[in-house]
Amino acid sequence: MNSRRIFLQKLAAASVAVPFLPLYKSFGNPVVDKPQDGKILRVAICGLGGYGTRVAEAMQTCKRAKLVGVISGTPAKVKAWQAKYNIPEKNCYNYENFDAIRDNPDIDAVYVITPNALHHDQVIRVAKAGKHAISEKPMSINAKQGQEMVDACKKAGVKLLVGYRMHFEPNTLEIIRMRKDGELGKIMFFQGLSGFKIGDPTQWRLNKQLAGGGSMMDIGIYSINGARYMTGEDPIWVTAQETKTDPVKFKEGVDETIQFQFGFPSGAVASCLSTYSMNNLDRFFLNGDKGFAELQPSTGYGPIKGRTNKGELTGPHTIHQAVQMDEMAALIFDNKQPIVPVDGEEAVKDLKIIDAIYEACRTGKKVPLKL
């Protein structure tokens, strides 16, 4: 573990110098969509950590996406994944040699699930190799790097998608439908609470060089992105305040807790919280002059539960990562357009907001936004 951490730190240092889902028969257990016709998206996962493992497991239930390759700096993990998922040796790479995927016709896309600061260089390498890129969120550590990733993928003629799994979640999509159809009336207010108590103080998420920040770069982005898709607007200003109770664990540049507020063109406002020091914070609340909608939990792995002024939401519990990957296959091969975008441009907007939140924390001023 230590050797891998040292390797990632060195690599980071170098980097820094839909229509609705169909109705389901089951409402109690995880379900996936019915089989679809079409090409299978053959995916290599870059970064075989905890979330990479979750994605790999979910993909075993996919209908249009298949795990076919791995990229890792840990040989033992590569061997274990080879055995578990029947991955051929020719589809296994490390962080030094994975540019060679350009010569591998059996890989269509690479899903980058490494520490935040590594996404920029790795996605650009994927693009230069002529493969579609999927980046876990946040797409990068700032908007400048995010835009460079978008530009590189456009230049290479490949798609750049981001792991916004909630954009395909049934209860979330039902609230978006209600808002679009006017059932909630004029939207007035959104609240997003995103947080948990983080553990191991030596993990990469608490290393600014690898994470690009603290809670905001991990859990806070859910409330940022959620504020946008729940209200249907992009904010035009932000204010923010940082609170730090443990400067030893949360070193300079690693935020522990940030409260932030948005203003929207319609006059709606948002109040959100991102933290690494409190549990039981996974809630969205949307208020309109004709009704309301609430999700709690709102962004966890499920089941997502919610209610509106009309009653309980009864959408099925899906395997988020499996639905995401099948939908991404349709986006890449069929040009299907999701209800809420999952492309690089969408991610750059979130990164611009994060940049503005950090600026507001530093200056204490209201920061204007133009997304």
Rank of each mutant, 00 (worst) to 15 (best):
N2P: 02
R5K: 12
L8P: 04
L8D: 05
P19G: 12
L23D: 14
K25Q: 13
G28L: 15
P35V: 08
D37G: 14
L41C: 14
V43I: 14
A44M: 03
T53C: 03
R54S: 14
R54K: 10
A65L: 02
V68T: 14
G69R: 04
T74H: 06
P75N: 14
A83P: 03
I87D: 03
Y95P: 08
D103V: 02
A109G: 06
A109F: 02
Y111S: 06
Y111I: 09
V112W: 01
A117G: 05
H119A: 08
H120L: 11
I124K: 11
R125G: 05
A127E: 04
G130F: 11
I134L: 09
G146C: 13
G146D: 12
Q147E: 15
E148Y: 05
E148I: 00
A152I: 00
A152C: 03
P170Y: 06
P170S: 05
N171K: 09
E174V: 10
R179A: 08
G182L: 10
G199S: 14
D200W: 01
Q203P: 04
G220Y: 04
I221W: 05
Y222C: 06
Y222S: 04
N225S: 05
A227C: 02
R228Y: 07
E233K: 12
I236A: 07
T239H: 09
T243V: 09
T245S: 14
V248R: 15
F250C: 09
E252L: 13
G253P: 00
V254S: 10
F262H: 12
P265L: 03
S266E: 13
A268V: 10
A270Q: 02
L273W: 04
S274V: 09
T275Q: 11
Y276D: 00
Y276F: 13
N279A: 04
G288H: 02
A293M: 13
L295H: 07
S298G: 15
T299Y: 14
G302H: 07
N309K: 08
P316D: 05
H317K: 08
Q321C: 12
M328Y: 10
A329K: 11
A330Y: 01
F333T: 03
K336I: 10
I339N: 02
G344W: 00
A347K: 00
A347M: 05
D350E: 14
L351M: 15
I354Y: 03
I354M: 13
I354H: 06
D355C: 03
K366L: 02
V367F: 13
P368F: 08
